[in-house]
Design a protein around this nucleic acid. Structure first.
Lengths: 148, 148
DNA sequence: CAGAATTGGTGGGTTAAAGTGGTTTTTTGT
DNA sequence: ACAAAAAACCACTTTAACCCACCAATTCTG
């Protein structure tokens, strides 16, 4: 169960060091083998332990897509950007240029734990998405039962 | 299971190098023998390992088409553009001009893995299709159950 | 409390591999 | 037989993987 947000920096080569707290857990969960991909709606990256991904990916692939442009888009986002990566000796990963571009990443990033996955954001975009109150949709019934 | 997006360049002769990550898997799956064809709705190319294509093509061909213009269009796109190709010694393929024209390919391309197949896009068109939120249709119920 | 040691994070250089561009030879089609 | 296109070959540039070194911060220890 990942949680918390961490500010980190990406160097000129596109390498970023996973914060040690998260790293320890990633190594425990999956030996440091992860899959990084694009979020289906927002300009951020998703990080899954390999085992998580192996249950999610086939479900996404199996969606019927012949007559649904939005399913195809979902598949392009999730499958079409997914790259398996492994932590190097220094606990870093090298993000491919396509993923850097997708999420608009430059030097300053946020890595956030969200339960079974992580998210990687451009620091400014992360701040903006926390700022923004303009969500158009309502919370679903299950959420209304929560007592926070 | 193919995944990930890779930016590559096509040279003036229409040659393009399949990214090594994907290439290794293609060689493992089908010895580098592939079939490239046109997408039925979008201006991109589809790449199947030969074995995949041999199960898909007969199904498309067998669709009743007497009274359905859309089936005939589907068949023209998928069957009518399909070309068998083989990776050369440098891991490249030579795309016929008709397919280049169909997908509006020039120098900068994206090759994306989408499960059992690949897609080849003009780089600008790929970016636009990721950007575009104007999907008219809703996600199907199966997709709504996903917990990404 | 001061100094030493360790850990986490960062940056750079080297080597091997991948990607790209061009030239020549062979084939194909007219 | 000739022209055009594709295949094969070769050479160069760029990138990624690996290694090592450094700095900062925190912790441990005398």
């Amino acid at each position: 169960m990942y949680s918390g947000s961490h500010a980190i920096t990406m160097d000129a080569k596109g390498r970023l060091a996973i914060p040690s707290r998260i790293r320890d857990q990633l190594v425990a969960d999956c030996g440091g083998r992860i899959v990084v991909t694009a979020h289906h709606e927002e300009r951020c990256l998703l990080v899954y332990p390999e085992s998580q991904w192996q249950t999610l990916a086939p479900q996404v692939q199996a969606l019927p897509n012949i007559q649904s442009a939005s399913v195809r888009k979902l598949q392009r986002r999730l499958l079409g950007h997914a790259v398996p990566l492994e932590l190097d000796a220094n606990g870093r990963i090298l993000l491919p240029p396509t993923l850097r571009d997708f999420a608009g990443l430059d030097k300053d990033l946020i890595v956030a734990g969200l339960g079974h996955r992580l998210e990687i954001w451009n620091e400014a975009a992360w701040a903006a998405s926390n700022e923004d109150d303009s969500d158009s949709d309502e919370l679903p019934p299950a959420a209304l039962l929560l007592n926070i």
